[in-house]
Design a protein around this nucleic acid. Structure first.
Lengths: 343, 343
DNA sequence: CTGAAAGCGCTTACAG
DNA sequence: CTGAAAGCGCTTACAG
């Protein structure tokens, strides 16, 4: 194929050019040719700009699929210049290094960079408000009357909350339903004396998991007991100590529903050290299904990738001025080796 | 200042243009003007290309400093096209979610993107070799006869090992010296019965820390005892269980040197549960000085940021074909509240 | 040893 | 509704 006006000398071509046409990734140029439009039009389609005839849009979309086109983020970023800076603001008291958060962050960064957005962490001021502002914000967790929410709303900065709160954009895992599923599973196996291992309840997710647990018990005619609620401090060590202490104090139970995999691991260790076998003597259910933690644990799987993707989706809606929405991401019971029928 | 040939209409300027000259970040253009050279020359200086007169280089460097210039990574990436892909290969058995690794990774990504490099993780094949190859590789940890080293050498792929091995580029914290410093500190406080809390010794860092510990003891005339070496499994829970068990079995000691902060936290919890006070009854030293873990812990601080930066520096040397070098990053004893004079 | 200029892949006024 | 063209900030043959 001879392109008129092609001035580049042969020397510029790399020596080892296996295939001439599909040289590297397809560009917006390739898509434009394929669809028979200009690059400008393709760009408008990519960015969902209004003012493209529906049929043209269709053609472009098809061409993109055919070529398996993915925009080059570097070029996009360079061109946009005024890059969208997305801030991440973490609720006070939330630890950064816990596995769940690390995974979420990984997915979030990935998701954002696909769109050419840059994530920066926003430290909190002493009054709990963000130190500075960005074009949009992801809030990880919120307290009961979190100042940041109204602060952002007043300044009409689009934001999405990982958690839930009336009247704002939010996304969260279905913690409540996870609590239900774990408990139903244990009830089904004949357990009635079920310990709930959690942390101090200033955290929405853990509150919801506990609520789901209690409601399910009551629906089955089992009264939740205050002394069955153990504080595992969200860590494996905390889970260990709480369970061990309960055991030493003579608390009797046949199952443990731990509100995180880490606490479940601690619980299992404590049971072992106290001469109890899992699942023969005591069944244990975790929550999260994190990699690298408790391989054979019966647990509630969260879709962290989906949560991150949804957060970004909602944020983009906010950036486009679309109405506030929220979404609940389903969880799923994964039955493995740490639960069994009550003896 | 009137620039001849300035064709851009006023309409293109943003409405809110506070200052006209220092509009946003300085570009390579600005540096070029400031230094009185062309952008090409500036670029050559930035990239350390040969063939720039020393005096010119100086001028450019100065101009960069004056303007506080930092290259735009998006533009760089777009222009380079053939971006350098750096692979990260983790030694088998290394957990990804441990805080130390998370921090290292954070710094590493940051460091690499400054140079427009992209980091991708390389999974291991079942034979331990990398699944695919990149332009350069960062190895995190290495086993005694790690196949990956010779594999990469054969293919002459530049790589840097976080750890140490003869004949290859490597960087590591001064683990041995950290072991010394921790032990000297305890000896100075009058302790002689010092437990060492570590993990199974298939890990260079932990071997070195233990070696430093033992050598220091012997130099002070104290014979290291086999029963003073406890397996804490690198986790707080493991540290707790190991120390608690030792205590229950009647092991006597006045101090613990834990080879990681996490194990130290577990150790302190176990001591507390067994009715011993820190540091009045037992002194505890950790290692790493991780954030969010044991705030008031006496520990050995590692400079993780420096390790990551050095890894990248060595890698760049490799990419330029320069001779193999290695570097040891110093550590530092931080005395806080968990150590005291022996009673 | 250095400068002028083309090009990386995208976006966006502007003109039609 | 769409195309032609300039521009984002950098790199790199090419020419001198």
């Amino acid at each position: 194929m001879i392109v008129s006006g092609y001035k580049m000398s042969d020397k510029k071509r790399p020596m080892i050019n296996h295939q001439l046409e599909p040289t590297g990734r397809p560009t917006i140029q390739d898509v434009a040719s394929e669809a028979g439009v200009s690059t400008g039009t393709v760009s408008r389609v990519i960015n969902n700009r209004a003012g493209v005839k529906a049929i043209t849009r269709q053609q472009v979309l098809l061409a993109m699929q055919r070529l398996n086109y993915r925009p080059d983020s570097a070029a996009r970023e360079l061109s946009l210049r005024q890059m969208t800076r997305v801030g991440l603001s973490i609720a006070a008291g939330n630890r950064r290094l816990i596995p769940y958060f690390v995974l979420f962050l990984e997915y979030l960064i990935n998701e954002l960079q696909t769109d050419g957005y840059r994530l920066e962490e926003i430290p909190s001021r002493s009054d709990g408000l963000p130190e500075w502002l960005t074009d949009a914000v992801v809030l990880f967790g919120a307290h009961d009357d979190d100042l940041r929410l109204s602060y952002l709303q007043q300044r009409s900065i689009p934001f999405v909350l990982v958690g839930h709160h009336p009247g704002v954009r939010w996304v969260m895992p279905d913690d409540y339903n996870g609590g239900r599923q774990a408990t139903e599973h244990l009830l089904r196996l004949g357990h009635r004396e079920i310990v709930h291992l959690s942390g101090y309840m200033n955290n929405q997710s853990f509150q919801d998991r506990y609520q789901g647990h209690c409601d399910t018990l009551q629906a089955a005619g089992v009264q939740p007991r205050r002394d069955y609620l153990l504080d595992g401090d969200f860590t494996s060590l905390g889970g260990y100590r709480a369970v061990r202490k309960a055991l030493e104090q003579g608390l009797r139970f046949s199952a443990i529903f731990a509100a995180s995999d880490e606490m479940a691991v601690g619980a299992i260790a404590a049971l072992g050290d106290m001469g109890l076998r899992v699942p023969m003597d005591v069944s244990v259910v975790g929550f999260d299904d994190l990699p690298e933690i408790g391989e054979s644990l019966t647990t509630i799987r969260q879709d962290i990738a989906k949560i991150a993707a949804t957060a970004v989706k909602l944020l983009k809606q906010g950036l486009l001025g679309q109405p506030v929405q929220h979404e609940v991401v389903p969880v799923q019971l994964i039955v493995r080796g740490t639960t069994a029928r009550r003896r």
